[in-house]
Structures are given as structure tokens and as C-alpha cells.
Amino acid sequence: MIPFAFYLFAVLITGLFLVAVLSRNVLYAMTSLAAGMVLISGLFFILGADFLGVVQLIVYVGAVMGLYAFAMMFFDVSREVRETRSNPWLVFLLGGGIALMLVVMFAAPIVGDSVKALYPPVAHTTNPQAVGLVLFTKYLLPFEVASVMLLVAMIAGIILAGRKMEISLSAMDEDILPETKENA
């Protein structure tokens, strides 16, 4: 049962992400990316990382893709994305070659069996309990640093996107463009 589920998820994720990368419509790319992320949380559930799967569903599919959907309202996404075609096979070979090199590089220690388990899960605990036990003891300092980073990112997002919010680009007359046109 698990091999079937793994291969189903793997094929679907690969196909959906290929659509997300190759499609010329922003809406298609975004929806296929969101669907692929839902299926990735399925992979996490297969692996026994229940809490990670739930976080993936809430944060990635809920928050991040929702943020992209809101940001798409600012841009003109109705027309198709125009892209300069600079020899796509060269680009494909280049990306594949770099990725293959990276994978070989990072998979080498795994093949060498030199990795030891530092923090094995505590016996007789469910996955969220084990995550909490490790996160709030061994990884407490990175957790706090991550919380400060999220706070900084939130303030930066509000300030960056909130500047000149009183100027609406869509409901603007042609003759009272303040300084947006002269910089263009």
C-alpha cells in the first residue's frame, strides 16, 4: 500500500511542479503549485512526520499560497507571461547538470553511512510530542531566533507593501499620475 501511495504522490507532484514551472499562465502555475504542496504533505504523512505535514498544509498551502493569491491582485496576470526563448535545451541541460551535481554532493554522506542519529524520538510518544520535546529543549535558541525573524519579516512586509497605499493604480485618472510615470 505504501509503495503505491509513494509512486502515486511522486508522479503527481512531479507533473504538477512541471506545470508550475513550464506554464505561461500565472494562475495555472499558482494552482498547480498549491496542489503539489498538498500532495507533499501526503508524503510527510507517509513518512510518519505528522506534525510537519500539518504545518506544511497550514503554512504553505494556507498562508504562503494565500499571500501569493493576494499579491496577484496587484499585478496584471490576465495576459500570458512573455518570455524570451533563449535556447531552452541549453537552459534545461544547465539546470539539470547543476542539480545533479548538488544532489551527488549532498547525498554522498548518506551513502557513506557516516550519519549518526543525534536526537532519536523519545519512546512511547506520538510525533507531535516528540517534535515538541526536541524543539523546546535542543532547538530552543533557533526557535526564538526564527520567531524574531518572522516578526521582522512581518513588519518589513507591512511597511514595504503599505507605502503609498492611498494611491490606487487601478482607480487613477490618466493625468494625475504623481511620480510613477516619470520614473518608468
Binding site: 506534525f51 499571500l67 524543539l135 519579516a153
Partner: peptide, 25 residues
């Protein structure tokens, strides 16, 4: 059987969320 990998995945998700917030701004 090591929890460190899941911890790093959580931190990657946190980094991705803040990247999206600042980047979209």
C-alpha cells in the same frame, strides 16, 4: 530515526514564509 531533520524542515518553512512576506512587499 532522528528528529533533527524535521526541525530543520520547520525552520525552512519559517524562512520561506518570511521570504515570501518581504519579497512580495
Amino acid at each position: 530515526h532522528d528528529m533533527s531533520g524535521q526541525m530543520f524542515a520547520f525552520f525552512i518553512i519559517a524562512v520561506a514564509a518570511s521570504e515570501v512576506a518581504v519579497g512580495l512587499g
